[in-house]
Design a protein around this nucleic acid. Sequence first.
DNA 1: CCAGGGATGGACT
DNA 2: GTCCATCCCTGGT
Length: 198
Amino acid sequence: MLPSSFYQKTDVIYLAKKLLGKAIYTNINNELTAGIIVETESYRGVNDKASHAYNNKRTKKNEAMYLEGGNIYVYICYGIHHLLNVVTNKKDIPHAILIRAIEPTIGIDVMLKRRNKKKENYSLTAGPGSLTQALGISILHNMKSLNDKEIWIEDVNNEIEEYNIIKSPRVGVSYAKEDALLPWRFRIKDNPWTSKAI
DNA sequence: CCAGGGATGGACT
DNA sequence: GTCCATCCCTGGT
């Protein structure tokens, strides 16, 4: 389990790249599942027009972003999809990292059941709404800690070098004007489990 | 009070 | 490629 100090570092761009290659685990309803994080996006708080916390926006929905690093921000997108963010930085600095895809490693049978699929393929966990469903993560986990027995992240000695990280603009944030072009989406090069979004 | 809309994914042509 | 399901917070009336 990563220490809280990891998440409380101040550079959310650095941390989004550092999360690549790490393993995220859930143990929900006594069912263990896990995968390697292969795609992330950074959201850099009050000055980032794509962030839910832009301009110090603070509501019941995004309150989790203002917790200290190492907590979880889950919100529902389009009324259907539960999207998982790792909160970073100090308390009251609302930085977050969206987990966009994982490569499944443990509990694939459980993931198939949760996703209502018969056969494993790349659509099992590629995409932010898909991986939360596979891992059993929902809005119920909003504001919970990653230093916990239900959801946690581990270093599995799988460091991703800078030259193996693809950087591109974030997905679905065209409303963010000039900030929409920032290359803050990170993917492991040549990994087939990343999301298919352009 | 209520219409609008979003860090998407899946079904279908 | 196109369409659209469906939640709930937000902001304008």
